[in-house]
């Protein structure tokens, strides 16, 4: 939808109201998240769930070893956000923390409260304190990112997945050319899309090189953590 739908906010002048209509990403609670890590997967088993980026940005804070204080911070972070699976890999060490149940269901749709249930009690449901899924922490099955169905079975195709939950945009603006198209040649630092999460526009780099062969998501659609976005031919 466009600015024109909002009479109070004439086109090309957003100082009055810069918000716009986006696809919803409602009721898509935290998927398995990795603190700063980013998982890619490919159908090629030798290449499966290789972690690339996690170490770069936080290298300053964690470095090549973790002391107990830092580990405590990480554990707090995990419990605070209801991560079910956290993995941190550095030269010389690796820590993996898991919680939750293996087969908890994830609910993508909006939550309908039974009429008999007062709203307040649902709101009071602890966000992360129990492994059982509550409405605010639908715990996905561990490894849900790698278990995400990949729409293509071509073994040579590498998949760029979404590192976050949000709304997928192929271009910087509705009138701009898309960042990439089928057939585009990409490098690791090529920006392939923007994913918006709560008004934060995140440029997503390819992190792999090759040629875009498949685009799995339509513009302005909500995407999940780990959802395949692009198929890339080496």
């Amino acid at each position: 939808m466009s600015e024109q739908d909002k009479p109070q906010s004439p086109e090309a002048a957003t100082n009055a109201d810069s918000t716009n209509n986006q696809s919803t990403s409602e009721r898509r609670d935290r998927f398995e998240r990795h603190g700063g890590g980013r998982r890619r997967h490919s159908n090629n088993p030798s290449n499966n769930s290789r972690r690339q980026e996690g170490g770069r940005a936080d290298a300053n804070s964690i470095g090549t070893s973790v002391n107990m204080d830092e580990l405590r911070e990480v554990v707090e972070l995990i419990s605070r956000h209801g991560f079910t699976d956290f993995e941190l890999e550095r030269e010389g060490f690796r820590v993996r923390l898991r919680r939750g149940t293996a087969n908890a269901e994830t609910n993508f749709s909006s939550v309908a409260l039974p009429p008999s249930q007062p709203l307040a009690s649902s709101f009071a449901a602890p966000a992360v304190s129990t492994p059982a899924p509550s409405f605010s922490s639908a715990a996905p099955a561990p490894n849900s990112a790698t278990a995400t169905p990949i729409p293509d079975t071509d073994a040579d195709l590498q998949i760029i997945t979404s590192p976050i939950v949000g709304t997928f945009y192929r271009a910087a603006s509705p009138t701009s050319d898309p960042f990439v198209k089928t057939g585009s040649s990409i490098q690791a630092d090529t920006v392939v899309c923007i994913i918006e999460a709560m008004k934060l526009m995140n440029e997503i780099p390819a992190e792999i090189s090759g040629t875009i062969e498949k685009i799995f998501v339509e513009n302005a659609q909500p995407v999940e953590y780990g959802q395949p976005l692009f198929g890339v031919r080496k």
């Binding site: 209509n21 986006q22 409602e26 909006s110 939550v111 649902s122 939950v165 949000g166 709560m198 909500p222």
Partner: peptide, 11 residues
């Protein structure tokens, strides 16, 4: 009476 979680769109 449904509860919806909004992470996108215009409020």
């Amino acid at each position: 009476g449904h509860l919806r979680l909004v992470r996108a769109g215009d409020v």
